[in-house]
Simulated assay, not measured.
Amino acid sequence: MAILTTAPAAAPAPDAPAPSRPRRRPSARRRMEGRAFYAFISPWLAGTVLLTLFPLVYAFVISMTNWDGISPSFSWVGLGNYGDVLVDPGTWASLGRTGVLAAIVVPITIVGSLLLAVLLNQRVRGRTWFRSFIYLPAIVPPVAATLTWKLIFDRDTGALNGLLAQLGLDAVDWFNGDAVFGVLIVVMLWGIGGGVIINLAALQDVSAELTEAAVLDGANAAQRFWHVTLPAISPVILFQTITTTIGALQTFVPALLLSPASGAAAITAVPEANQIFMIDVYAKYFAYSQYGPASAMLWLFFLAILLVTVLTFKIGGRTVFYAVDPSEKGR
């Protein structure tokens, strides 16, 4: 009787390519989801192209010309505007004031918002009202907030000079001299409540297990905050540092509205102490019709802010702790 046997299948050659699977065509549902995705992000894409990318390219083109913003004729000057801007003492003076402003406002905002968030995170009666009161200034439009503080600091009718008079002190002209720079700092710190809410949300997301473990190890409140809470919320602090720095460097509206004059004359009447970089750019555009140099200043400022942001990421990234390694996400 014959026994039928089957020969074992031959092993594929080691160099033979793996059989390729036929590529599936996306289903109708996947195509519909894709179209819905692009439909939902289309307003953002249109806004990015029309309000960000196009102005950047247009400003770069103008920075290569001597256009005055009115005349239809202009000539190309190449990188001449950039050279003129870099050797202009006024540019460096305004940039220095902007740096001083950011160096004062950013640390106070970061540290102050964190301390207020820690206080408001305590279990005390009425903390919801306190949180609302702290956050309320952050939702006030910048123009309204600046004009309100301008009324408070007014030399003749302001509430602050009225208080000084009650104390037997002389009235201060807050909008002339170096005093106006202090007023600008106060106006910018007025909206600190936004950072408080972000820090408060981060504090409430700190792992309770880590805090309890630190308590069992005998750590006091200061040690728990420094070794547990602060590392846990360090990504939020880095985020706020970057956004607050960019916002401080781009300050414009408060400095312009704190000018003693109003209307079209406000830009040329800004006190020297408040002539920060964006005020200098605005003046070149609309007061002196120097569109080429102004556009060159904007592009140089854009590159400077980009450099500051990258350096902040590099330096701050060494002290930031993530619950999940960023390199492992998406794997």
Rank of each mutant, 00 (worst) to 15 (best):
S113K: 09
Q250M: 10
L303W: 09
Q240N: 10
A93H: 06
D205I: 02
R31W: 14
A179Y: 12
D88E: 04
A103V: 09
T268W: 01
L256A: 05
M1Q: 13
T109Q: 14
E33M: 14
V310K: 10
G195W: 04
A159C: 05
A46D: 00
S327G: 09
R25W: 15
V105G: 02
P271V: 04
E209M: 09
T146E: 08
P12D: 12
V270E: 00
L311T: 14
L184I: 08
L184G: 11
T146D: 03
I198M: 04
A221M: 08
V206T: 07
S295T: 07
V180I: 14
T157F: 15
A264G: 10
P17G: 05
S75F: 08
A39F: 11
W129F: 15
I305R: 01
S327P: 01
T157P: 01
L86T: 04
I134D: 07
I315Y: 11
T65G: 02
G182P: 11
G47I: 03
V253T: 15
R123F: 06
I134Y: 13
L311Y: 04
P14I: 04
V187I: 15
L256M: 09
Y288P: 00
F54A: 14
A283E: 12
A165V: 10
L101G: 02
T243F: 13
P107C: 02
A287F: 04
L164F: 03
V206K: 10
T319H: 10
L169P: 00
P260K: 05
L151E: 13
A261M: 08
P326I: 07
P231K: 01
G316L: 01
L51Q: 12
G316S: 01
I242V: 14
V187Q: 10
T312V: 14
